[in-house]
Simulated scan of single mutants.
Amino acid sequence: MQAFFPFSETTDGVTVRVSVTFLPEQSDIDGLRWFWAYHIRIENERDSAVQLLTRHWRISDARGALHRVDGDGVIGEQPVIQPGKSHDYVSGCPLNTPSGAMAGHFMFVGSAPDAFEVRIPHFPLTAPTVEQ
C-alpha cells in the first residue's frame, strides 16, 4: 500500500493516506493553471466508529502564497467509518504555479462526545518539467 499511498499519518487510531497525480489534461500551462487530483483514504483502526465532521487545508504554491480551505465534511459527505473500515474520496487542486504542497487536518467525533483532530500528511504538488 506504501507505493499507491506514499504519504500517510496516523493520529489517535485514524490513518490518513494520500496519493497525488498531476493532470496535464486538466491543466493550462500557457494560462498558468496546473491541476492535481489527490486520493485520500481514511482508515479507522479504533475500537468504535468515527465520523468526519470538517476539513481544514493549507495549500501553498511555489511563490509562497498560502491558501486556507475550511469546510464541512469531504466532497459533500460527513462519512461514518466503522472500526477496521476505510473511506476513500478523490478531489482536486488547481494552482497558478507548477508546484506547491498541501497539508491539514480533519475533525472527527467518536464514541466520546469530544471532537478530535486527525492530521493529513504534508504532500507535494509537482508538475513534471517540460523540455523545450
Results as ranks from 00 to 15, higher is better:
104 G>T: 02
13 G>P: 00
46 R>W: 12
111 S>I: 13
24 P>F: 03
13 G>F: 04
55 R>L: 11
125 L>C: 00
75 I>V: 15
37 A>N: 14
116 F>W: 02
38 Y>L: 01
123 F>C: 00
78 Q>H: 10
32 L>N: 11
118 V>P: 01
18 V>A: 07
80 V>Q: 09
93 C>A: 10
117 E>P: 07
94 P>D: 06
119 R>Q: 12
105 H>T: 11
121 P>L: 04
22 F>A: 00
84 G>D: 02
107 M>K: 10
97 T>E: 00
32 L>T: 14
12 D>H: 11
113 P>T: 05
125 L>S: 01
64 G>Q: 00
111 S>H: 14
96 N>T: 13
31 G>D: 07
21 T>Q: 12
71 G>V: 04
102 M>K: 06
116 F>V: 02
108 F>A: 02
43 E>R: 06
93 C>D: 09
56 H>G: 08
97 T>I: 00
40 I>P: 11
11 T>P: 04
30 D>F: 12
37 A>K: 14
92 G>P: 06
13 G>H: 03
94 P>M: 07
90 V>Q: 15
29 I>N: 03
52 L>C: 03
109 V>D: 01
66 L>A: 10
75 I>G: 08
89 Y>C: 02
49 A>Q: 08
20 V>I: 05
36 W>T: 01
121 P>K: 04
51 Q>T: 04
64 G>I: 01
90 V>G: 15
125 L>K: 00
41 R>T: 07
87 H>R: 05
66 L>Q: 08
65 A>Y: 14
118 V>R: 02
94 P>W: 05
65 A>V: 11
74 V>Q: 04
86 S>Y: 10
57 W>V: 03
58 R>G: 11
122 H>L: 09
61 D>R: 03
128 P>S: 03
16 V>W: 03
